[in-house]
Computed example of a mutant assay.
Amino acid sequence: MFLEIITPDNKLFEGEVDSATFPGNEGSFQVLDDHAPLVSSLGLGELRYKYKDHDHIKEKELKIDGGIVEVLNNRVLVLVESVQA
């Protein structure tokens, strides 16, 4: 599935991923290929995604301060308010 992570200042990530885990306001949840359509608010916490880099699976974690996620047709758009360093 295709993941795009955007802040008000820039685009943090754009590319194919195997999975993505989000900090929902009522608990974390994971999105995989062929997930049902979804729109959800995000809370403070870790956004994690797994992707392939030269045939190796890598995992990236971002600490976010809330936002919105939309899942539709194997495309995941994440709008985050800010990312903690």
Rank of each mutant, 00 (worst) to 15 (best):
D65F: 11
I57A: 14
Y49P: 02
V76S: 04
K60M: 06
Q84G: 05
Q84W: 06
V83I: 15
A20S: 09
H54D: 06
L77Y: 01
I5L: 12
E70F: 08
L79P: 00
L77T: 05
G27T: 10
V39M: 14
H56C: 10
P8E: 10
K60R: 03
S28Q: 08
G43S: 07
D34S: 12
D9Y: 12
S41E: 10
N74M: 13
V39W: 07
H35F: 11
L79Y: 07
V83S: 04
G24R: 00
F13G: 08
D65P: 00
D33L: 15
L72V: 13
I64T: 06
V80S: 05
V17I: 15
L47F: 03
S41M: 14
K58G: 02
L42F: 04
L42N: 04
G66K: 03
V17W: 05
E70W: 04
T7F: 09
V17E: 01
E70Y: 02
E70M: 08
Y51H: 01
E16S: 11
F2Q: 10
K58C: 06
D65S: 11
N10A: 15
F2L: 15
V69R: 01
L44F: 09
N10W: 13
V71F: 08
S19W: 08
L44G: 00
Y51D: 02
K50R: 05
S28L: 13
K11D: 03
H56M: 12
G24Y: 07
L38E: 05
N73M: 11
I64Y: 03
A85Q: 10
K58Q: 02
L62H: 02
Y51I: 09
V78H: 00
F29Q: 03
P8H: 07
I68Q: 09
T21E: 12
G15M: 12
E46F: 13
H54E: 13
N74D: 08
D65Q: 11
V83H: 11
G43I: 12
D53H: 02
K50E: 01
L44C: 10
G24T: 02
D33P: 00
F2V: 13
V80Y: 06
L77W: 04
L38H: 02
S82G: 06
L3Q: 04
A85W: 11
L47N: 00
P23Q: 09
E14K: 08
L44D: 00
